Simulated scan of single mutants.
Amino acid sequence: MVIPVHDVNPTRRTPWVTYALIVANIVVFLRTPGMAGSVTGESGLAQLCRLEAFLDQWAAVPRELIHDRLPGLVPTGRVAVGPSGPGCVVAPPGYDKSPPLSVLTSAFLHGSWLHLLGNMLFLWIFGDNIEDRLGRVRYVLFYGVCGYVAAYGFALANADSTAPLIGASGAVAGVLGAYLVLFPTARVWVLVPFLVFLPLRLPAWSVLGLWFGLQAVFSYGAAVSQAGTVAYLAHVLGFAAGMLLAWPLRRGTAPPPEPPGLLWGRQARPGEPWQGRPRRGW
């Protein structure tokens, strides 16, 4: 899997909405119980119980989305010692939760630093151009619609699941789908792990096409949302929604400029060979 680090696709204005989304996701993560203090998100039983209660209240749960009702018993965040040992206490919910609204709140929750940074990296690289093309208001609506399509589509396929569905992946996947439609020939600098990380400049269609292909393949055997697993099906659905929403705009979108003489992330010196051709090179 390649790791994108930068795209050669300038914008006309500052992507304030993208920046705000990234900041909001980081702030929420830092305030999530048990997450900020550990790179892996693992912690003691007390913190895990608080985290379970926090996610149950604010994350999207497929069964709740489909049936639009809360379960009879939910985690309280407290720890008790029973005959079989210590465990998390459950009780009737002491809060009023709206399952449709939980899709919005769950998009700002992440299960680990790696989960957060991965989503924010893709949003940072590709979100600015989509915001620039759509405009700030339409971009916010677009981001939300892709997130809802991903969450409800996943819930329909996993109607009995009670595991929290968290992360901005569905909405960010929509951004990637729109980028593929609007800027397929934009050059993206990526790191390819091969003994060492090799920097390559590839067209967006190859980078995002590979990403989508992997998500589609994984979704057949890993379309679940449980601890330590990934909701690949939500990624596929969010990506498809982004492509469909961006499709009417593709004819009016100018292709990104090709920077002449760009060699491995720097300007080539006079007389230095450069591998590539305008508009068609890799």
Rank of each mutant, 00 (worst) to 15 (best):
P4M: 04
D7G: 00
V17R: 09
T18W: 03
L21N: 07
N25K: 11
I26G: 05
L30P: 07
G44Y: 08
L45H: 02
Q47C: 03
L51A: 12
E52H: 14
A53P: 03
D56F: 01
A60V: 00
R63L: 11
R63Q: 13
L65E: 01
H67E: 15
G72S: 15
V74T: 14
V79D: 05
V79P: 12
A80E: 15
V89D: 04
V89F: 09
A91V: 08
K97F: 02
K97G: 07
V103K: 04
T105F: 07
S106F: 07
F108P: 13
G111T: 01
W113H: 12
L116N: 07
N119E: 14
F122K: 09
F126Q: 01
R133E: 13
Y143R: 04
G144Y: 10
C146P: 10
G147L: 06
A150W: 05
Y152R: 09
A155I: 07
A157I: 06
A159C: 12
D160Q: 01
S169L: 05
S169C: 09
G170F: 02
A171C: 05
A173H: 01
G177P: 09
A178S: 04
V181T: 06
L182H: 09
T185G: 08
V188M: 08
V190Y: 07
P203N: 14
F212K: 09
L214R: 00
L214Q: 04
V217F: 15
V217I: 15
Y220M: 13
V224M: 13
A231P: 12
A241D: 02
L244H: 08
A246Q: 10
P248V: 11
R250I: 06
W264S: 02
Q267W: 03
G276H: 00
W282G: 02
